[in-house]
């Protein structure tokens, strides 16, 4: 490659990177400057006003440890939504992993009739849009009493999560040698200890990726939570959406920063696992 072209190439990459993080920059400027008027590019003053109004940071003068505790204990909407998002995410992740584990093992290790069909059925929620099932399901949930409560929201989150967890973990088991378990058994390990000492360490790295991913899918879920929660289960994406619709950029930006924090964290820790071949990647496209 000649030198000039090489330079242009690299500048293009830098330019692309800058364009790509423009929204992120805008989030931070918006969140930490309350009166950022057109046509300022750089805000005149920095401000924590948005955070104060969201009751995440106490008013100036009260920013002591006790002040924070007192404010957060008053259960502001963002904290409530954050806790809901976190707890639903954790619960759904754990349940989906437990449900997917035996299925993924069978799909990864054994060959049987209808296996392809079963995999196809399993992944179908990843292909068809959520709006196709959630409208009908909503009516069912109302009659079953699952609508408008925490349990119903968890249940409906399992639909988009299950396919990816099963798929990712099937991939793990496809490269897994069950003879390791047999070896442990002949060396005197019973079934429980074989699972804990042999199976679990072997599948753990892949399982962590599946779990982080499952969490992220639940964390980002807007439509399903909104419909099934019927406005009674408030999570962060619902808060972001309603704040964004009402149009206050500073508040929207502040909530959004909380909302994207785990996503960036997870990408940071899993980037070496995330490649085109992993089942998880195809799921990232749908968050």
């Amino acid at each position: 490659m000649n030198n000039n072209l090489k330079k242009i190439n690299i500048y293009a990459i830098y330019l692309g990177a800058i364009i790509l993080i423009l929204p992120l920059i805008a989030f931070f400027i918006n969140a930490f400057s309350f009166r950022w008027f057109y046509p300022q590019v750089i805000p005149k003053e920095l401000s924590l006003q948005a955070w104060v109004r969201l009751k995440l940071i106490p008013k100036s003068g009260q920013r002591t440890f006790e002040g924070f505790i007192e404010l957060w204990a008053s259960n502001p909407a963002v904290i409530k939504a954050l806790l809901n998002s976190l707890s639903i995410g954790f619960l759904v992740t754990i349940v989906s992993i437990i449900i997917a584990l035996p299925a993924a093992r069978v799909l990864g290790l054994l060959n049987f009739r209808f296996k392809k069909l079963i995999i196809f059925i399993m992944v179908s929620p990843t292909i068809l849009p959520p709006i196709a099932f959630v409208l009908g399901l909503n009516i069912n949930f109302i009659s079953w009493g699952f609508s408008g409560n925490y349990f119903g929201v968890c249940l409906v989150h399992l639909v988009p999560i299950m396919p990816y967890v099963v798929l990712t973990m099937t991939g793990i088991f496809a490269n897994y040698n069950p003879d390791f378990e047999h070896q442990a058994r002949t060396l005197g390990a019973n079934k429980t200890r074989t699972f804990l000492l042999i199976t679990l360490p072997a599948i753990a790295p892949g399982m962590v990726v599946a779990a982080l991913f499952a969490f992220l899918v639940s964390w980002s879920q807007y439509l399903l939570t909104f419909l099934i929660g019927a406005g009674k289960v408030m999570t962060l994406p619902l808060l972001v959406f309603s704040t964004a619709s009402s149009g206050n950029p500073a508040l929207t930006a502040a909530i959004s920063i909380i909302f994207i924090f785990p996503a960036i964290l997870i990408l940071f820790f899993t980037s070496k696992f995330v490649s085109g071949e992993s089942g998880a990647t195809s799921g990232f496209g749908k968050i």
């Binding site: 003879d179 047999h182 070896q183 058994r185 002949t186 060396l187 005197g188 390990a189 019973n190």
Partner: peptide, 11 residues
């Protein structure tokens, strides 16, 4: 059960 047989296999 396998683990109590005292039969060890080297794969």
């Amino acid at each position: 059960p396998t683990e109590k047989r005292g039969v060890v296999m080297v794969f």
